[in-house]
Amino acid sequence: MRDIKIDFIDFWPNLDKTNNYFYNILSEFYNVIIDSEKPDLIFYSCYGYDYLKYKCKRIFFTGENRRPDFMACDFAFSFDFNNRKDHYRLPLYLLYLDEANMNNKITEIKSRRELSEAWNNKKKLCCMVVSNPNAKERINFFHNLSSYIDVDSGGKVLNNVGGPVADKIKFIQDYKFVISFENESHDGYTTEKILEPIFVDSIPIYWGNRLVNKDFNPKRFLNYQDFETEEELIARLLEIDKNSEIAIDILSQEVFSQEVDSPSKIRKNVLEIIIKVIENNKKPKSQSYHELIHRIHFGFNRKLKMAKKKISYLFKSS
Results as ranks from 00 to 15, higher is better:
residue 237 L to D: 00
residue 223 N to M: 08
residue 239 E to G: 13
residue 160 N to R: 02
residue 3 D to Q: 13
residue 214 K to D: 11
residue 194 I to T: 03
residue 216 F to Q: 05
residue 301 N to R: 12
residue 160 N to G: 02
residue 264 S to T: 14
residue 287 Q to N: 15
residue 13 P to C: 04
residue 187 D to R: 01
residue 84 R to G: 11
residue 249 D to Y: 01
residue 149 I to G: 03
residue 305 K to F: 14
residue 60 F to H: 01
residue 113 R to D: 13
residue 255 V to A: 11
residue 31 N to V: 12
residue 104 N to R: 09
residue 215 D to Y: 11
residue 199 F to W: 08
residue 253 Q to F: 08
residue 231 E to S: 08
residue 311 I to L: 14
residue 88 Y to L: 14
residue 285 K to I: 10
residue 57 K to R: 11
residue 249 D to K: 06
residue 46 C to D: 13
residue 187 D to E: 12
residue 82 N to T: 13
residue 313 Y to D: 15
residue 317 S to W: 10
residue 173 Q to H: 05
residue 26 L to Q: 04
residue 218 P to W: 08
residue 233 L to T: 00
residue 14 N to I: 05
residue 149 I to Y: 04
residue 204 P to Y: 01
residue 144 N to F: 07
residue 299 G to A: 10
residue 233 L to E: 00
residue 280 N to L: 05
residue 318 S to G: 15
residue 212 V to H: 03
residue 265 K to A: 13
residue 25 I to A: 05
residue 224 Y to W: 14
residue 59 I to Q: 06
residue 5 K to D: 03
residue 209 N to V: 08
residue 304 L to Y: 10
residue 129 V to C: 14
residue 9 I to T: 06
residue 120 N to F: 12
residue 111 S to F: 02
residue 90 L to Q: 02
residue 186 H to C: 09
residue 218 P to K: 12
residue 137 E to L: 03
residue 1 M to D: 05
residue 311 I to P: 02
residue 89 R to F: 14
residue 72 A to H: 05
residue 300 F to A: 14
residue 104 N to W: 02
residue 203 I to S: 01
residue 211 L to K: 11
residue 104 N to S: 13
residue 74 D to L: 05
residue 5 K to L: 06
residue 225 Q to E: 15
residue 159 N to K: 02
residue 228 E to A: 11
residue 135 A to L: 05
residue 70 F to Y: 15
